[in-house]
Design a protein around this nucleic acid. Structure first.
Lengths: 226, 226
DNA sequence: TTGCATCTTGACCATTTGGTCAAATCCCTC
DNA sequence: GAGGGATTTGACCAAATGGTCAAGATGCAA
């Protein structure tokens, strides 16, 4: 995968990081995710991230050479896991099952890692200054590949003819919306994805709408009868 | 509507603003929208906004008492127009027509005012520090009202049973996604909503998917035959 | 034209903030 | 337990930035 920089400052033994480095880098990345996702790149301060990570600013800068380096590391850290679900779309599976599983995974991600979603959204909205190359190469390749899968399903008469790219965008948009706009959603409904019932309800609503939208439906799970 | 502050500094005659005030305020708000939507509240600088508006920082601060005041004014300025389309959902119309018209308007907004969309998204993602009260009152009321309209359509057997709130969220999510993530969309497809063809294609794809999703379809426009 | 309010600006200030550095402390190996 | 590298920190610095202020320029009514 096209890289973002990664390893930056502190020396390390041939194999990997020392015990202390391992722990501190992890603490920093966690704190950084919280700050960057909440305040954006400019709004977050190194001092605050350091405090959240339980160390001095100087020490943080011993592990990451600059604010931008922390930001890039954070982004790289979440990017892989964030795009992972799409990779699981299986060409040999049934469209309804596969799409439903994908949507479920994406909603699960929004529920468990809303900060990651917001960080990603923030980065892209600012013009993707750090990850544009990745979008243009790795992500583009992945989307093209999975679009072909959907095209094949359509060609095989397994689902209604839709533009695969717009379908993917729609799934991204809807699922990530529940993380990125959770404050608005909470203001309007009184709940958000941190509520298990609301998550289930959202999953049903979104899945049903999109599957119906492409002319599919999920077998009712209750009965074993066809 | 719950207010955000509005009028702040410069004196004004009984009726309204002077010619010069009118012009400068407008220039400032336009410049501010550009900066805030691109860099976020913290990332934007007063100096830069002033430069974009063609005046000195001092002069800008003559019209707006603080950076936050500019931000609030910008937000207030776009909020009304941003939420307007939902208000046009007509209880007496046909669901398919009404929803399609709403989606078309939202995509049109995303195409024409992507900065407004991003500014709004930014504000909400940061926890809606300025507009939370508005979301909790005005927007909540509006959503409740239009949800009832959809409920009524469902009760009348005019469309499939879906949760109206999730339907509204889905429409917001998909349509705004094309503005907020336009950089990503351009990286993946080579186009964005600034391309008229792509806008038309998007409108068709999204409308078709959502209408089908709720068990509706639009009469084919070409022929007069049923 | 004159007088006054409006408008505009450069100089300036206090604070915040990213980043440096040398000194101190900790941890591990031999 | 001594030596040396790894880790940690406070003091410090320079740049950026939001905001103030007094003085000057401009527009307008009488």
């Amino acid at each position: 995968m096209a890289d973002l920089g990664g390893q930056s400052q502190a020396s390390f033994k041939s194999g990997g990081l020392s015990r202390i480095q391992e722990k501190n880098r992890s603490l920093i990345l966690e704190a950084a995710l919280g700050e960057f996702s909440m305040k954006g790149f400019s709004g977050a301060t190194v001092e605050r991230i350091a405090a959240d990570a339980g160390m001095s600013k100087s020490n943080l800068l011993y592990y990451f050479s600059s604010k931008e380096a922390i930001y890039n590391a954070t982004l790289a850290h979440i990017l892989e896991v964030w795009l992972a679900p799409l990779k699981t779309l299986n060409p040999d599976g049934e469209p309804a099952q596969e799409l439903a599983a994908y949507i479920r995974q994406k909603i699960e991600m929004s529920a468990r890692f809303p900060e990651a979603s917001r960080l990603f959204a923030n980065e892209v909205m600012q013009g993707a200054p750090q990850i544009l190359p990745i979008l243009q190469t790795d992500l583009k390749r992945l989307v093209a590949e999975k679009s072909q899968v959907i095209e094949d399903w359509i060609a095989a008469g397994k689902m209604r003819s839709v533009d695969p790219v717009h379908l993917i965008f729609t799934i991204w948009a809807t699922t990530q919306h529940y993380a990125d706009f959770s404050v608005q959603i909470k203001a309007l409904t009184g709940k958000d994805l941190s509520d298990a019932d609301f998550q289930a309800e959202t999953e049903t609503a979104v899945t049903t709408l999109i599957l119906n939208g492409v002319g599919l439906s999920l077998p009712t799970e209750g009965g074993s009868a066809a």
